[in-house]
């Protein structure tokens, strides 16, 4: 118990000693970066719609093109620089997801097609897909139960 208290005291002391990023500034940068990515997405979306595509297909094209762009920027080592400046602005949009797929694939290529690229491509994106699918599955199950019991 006493040891725990000591550890807690040290942790608090370290927290006080450790410099942190300027939060308002970082938030502003994230705002601009994330906003810009979403704005770009909106441009693609509107363009697709203007070409007569329906809403879902337009959304699909938006994702695909943003992902392609992000993968290219990752390959040319530009995306890390954007993320360093923009923080969450580069992490939160779908481009961040694409980066999390492409970066381990590129980094671990030397470990082979299967154990390298194949396994490691999911190191960061895998959990996102797993928990996304699982959450929607649970929600879907709930929806189905409510539906067959005529509540909905």
């Amino acid at each position: 118990m006493d040891k725990q208290k000591q550890q807690q005291a040290y942790e608090n002391y370290v927290k006080q000693k450790t410099p942190v990023h300027n939060l308002p500034l970082n938030m502003a940068k994230a705002f601009v970066t994330g906003g810009a990515v979403c704005l770009l997405g909106q441009c693609i979306l509107n363009f697709c719609k203007s070409q007569g595509l329906d809403k879902d297909i337009s959304g699909g094209w938006t994702s695909i093109l943003l992902i392609l762009l992000s993968v290219l920027l990752t390959g040319f080592n530009i995306y890390p620089g954007i993320a360093k400046w923009g923080g969450a602005g580069a992490l939160v949009p779908i481009t961040g997801f694409a980066n999390s797929v492409a970066s381990p694939a590129i980094e671990y290529q030397k470990e082979g097609q299967v154990m390298g690229i194949g396994c490691k491509i999911f190191t960061i994106a895998g959990p996102v897909i797993l928990y996304g699918i699982f959450t929607s599955w649970v929600l879907g199950l709930g929806y189905w139960i409510l539906k067959i019991s005529n509540i909905l």
Binding site: V20, K84, G87, N99, A102, I124
Partner: peptide, 12 residues
């Protein structure tokens, strides 16, 4: 992380 991964390093 992989080197080209988009993370921000803390100041510590």
């Amino acid at each position: 992380f992989p080197l080209s991964y988009a993370n921000q390093r803390p100041l510590s």
